[in-house]
Simulated scan of single mutants.
Amino acid sequence: MTTAEHDEHAGHGDRNLNHTAFSATVHCLTGCAIGEILGLALGTAFGWSNGATIALSIALAFFFGYSLTLLPLVRADLSLRQALPLAFASDTLSIATMEIVDSLIVLAVPGAMDAGLGDLLFWGSLAGALFVAFWAAFPVNRWLIARGKGHAVVHAYH
């Protein structure tokens, strides 16, 4: 293989890796966003403390993130006992990264945790935090997939 052919092949591999990592990060963002929105909305509506609201949103983000991975695995005829370790292996680091970044940003935005559900500050800070968290989790997913870990372990079942 010539140097030019090698460079072209390597570039194609990077594009595929980036595409797969992007897709995995969108998947992670979807579960995290469902959990975050639901958790923050419930905590805000119930007047819970910031700590309780953040804890609920993180728990729900993990729940929905794992659930979105488990559904296709179970549909592919894996038992829950077989599918759970795959979901944990593929999603934990990505969700954790996204949740840490997202939560820290929402907590850092002045007034965001005190804003009501009808306030632009509530929704704007959450949207901005999820956007930044996506780009924090993307290199994590890319690194994992490049090493045959993360979402690479569940792609055979999709």
Score class of each variant (00 low, 15 high):
16 N>Q: 14
48 W>S: 08
61 A>M: 03
35 G>H: 07
36 E>A: 14
145 I>N: 07
89 A>T: 07
152 A>L: 10
123 W>R: 07
113 M>V: 09
56 L>Q: 05
139 P>F: 09
106 V>D: 01
94 S>W: 04
69 T>K: 04
62 F>G: 05
136 A>T: 09
107 L>Y: 07
79 S>K: 08
90 S>I: 04
111 G>T: 13
76 A>N: 13
126 L>H: 00
75 R>S: 10
69 T>S: 12
99 E>A: 13
149 K>A: 07
20 T>H: 13
132 V>I: 05
101 V>N: 05
91 D>P: 01
26 V>W: 12
69 T>I: 11
89 A>Y: 04
134 F>E: 00
136 A>V: 02
32 C>N: 11
83 A>K: 08
49 S>T: 15
66 Y>Q: 03
17 L>N: 11
29 L>P: 13
15 R>F: 12
155 H>W: 00
68 L>H: 10
66 Y>T: 03
43 G>R: 04
49 S>R: 13
62 F>A: 07
112 A>S: 12
152 A>S: 06
116 G>I: 04
37 I>T: 12
109 V>N: 05
79 S>D: 09
15 R>W: 14
56 L>P: 07
135 W>T: 10
102 D>P: 03
138 F>P: 00
72 P>F: 12
61 A>G: 15
30 T>K: 15
99 E>M: 15
91 D>M: 05
36 E>M: 09
136 A>N: 02
3 T>I: 14
96 A>S: 14
128 G>C: 06
142 R>I: 02
23 S>K: 14
149 K>M: 10
132 V>Y: 03
9 H>R: 13
5 E>I: 10
154 V>F: 03
97 T>F: 04
46 F>Q: 13
37 I>G: 00
76 A>F: 03
66 Y>N: 02
92 T>E: 00
51 G>V: 14
138 F>Q: 02
93 L>T: 12
153 V>M: 07
158 H>Y: 07
125 S>W: 01
150 G>V: 10
22 F>A: 15
138 F>A: 05
27 H>F: 14
138 F>C: 04
122 F>D: 01
46 F>K: 10
80 L>C: 11
101 V>Q: 12
21 A>P: 06
84 L>G: 06
138 F>H: 00
140 V>H: 02
149 K>L: 07
108 A>I: 09
58 I>K: 02
48 W>H: 14
137 A>T: 09
29 L>V: 14
92 T>A: 07
94 S>Q: 11
111 G>E: 13
99 E>V: 11
66 Y>I: 04
